[in-house]
């Protein structure tokens, strides 16, 4: 099996562009000088993580270039690699096909956007509190587990 290179630019689905650009979205709170916003990569990663956690890969209907791979930081890469490896039942060799890896990442992110939109519409502001509670719980569990 020969190694396949990662794409130069990551894509998102065309209908997800508005979600990524919406600074007023619940998850990207803050306005004016006090605005604390996630970077494009972080937004992509959040959607990806949400998709991985609560969904399954969803193929993109129409790809739209979103962020160049050269701007993807090591954190993002590590997270994506770990998640895809886990998704492939621990088969690390899957990572050798970087194209497939990032294609899957794009699909999970697409799924994540859909799920977040649904939750936002459904929870109406309580979503962040749920996320927070989840984070704290998971981090506590993780700390205990990995201590």
């Amino acid at each position: 099996m020969s190694r396949v290179q990662a794409p130069e630019i990551l894509s998102v689905d065309e209908q997800d562009v508005a979600f990524y650009a919406d600074d007023k979205s619940l998850l990207f709170t803050g306005t004016g000088k006090l605005a604390k916003r996630l970077s494009n990569t972080e937004r992509f990663l959040l959607a990806f993580a949400y998709g991985v956690r609560y969904g399954s890969p969803m193929p993109l209907k129409k790809k739209t270039s979103y962020v160049r791979m050269e701007y993807i930081d090591l954190d993002t890469k590590a997270v994506v690699m770990a998640a895809i490896t886990a998704f492939r039942k621990g088969d690390v060799s899957v990572l050798l096909d970087q194209s497939a890896v990032w294609d899957l990442a794009e699909q999970f992110a697409h799924e994540g956007v859909q799920l977040i939109r649904q939750q936002e519409a459904y929870k109406r502001g309580a979503m962040i509190e749920e996320l927070e509670a989840f984070v704290v719980t998971e981090m506590d569990n993780g700390s205990n587990k990995h201590a």
Binding site: L27, G30, E42, A82, T85, A86, I128, V135, M139
Partner: peptide
Amino acid sequence: RAERNVVVCRLFVVAALLQDLADF
């Protein structure tokens, strides 16, 4: 809250994939 939300979002990525990262 805005700061908290950002932190929550960032942490969510780690927390959601914590096990995967540990396994990895």
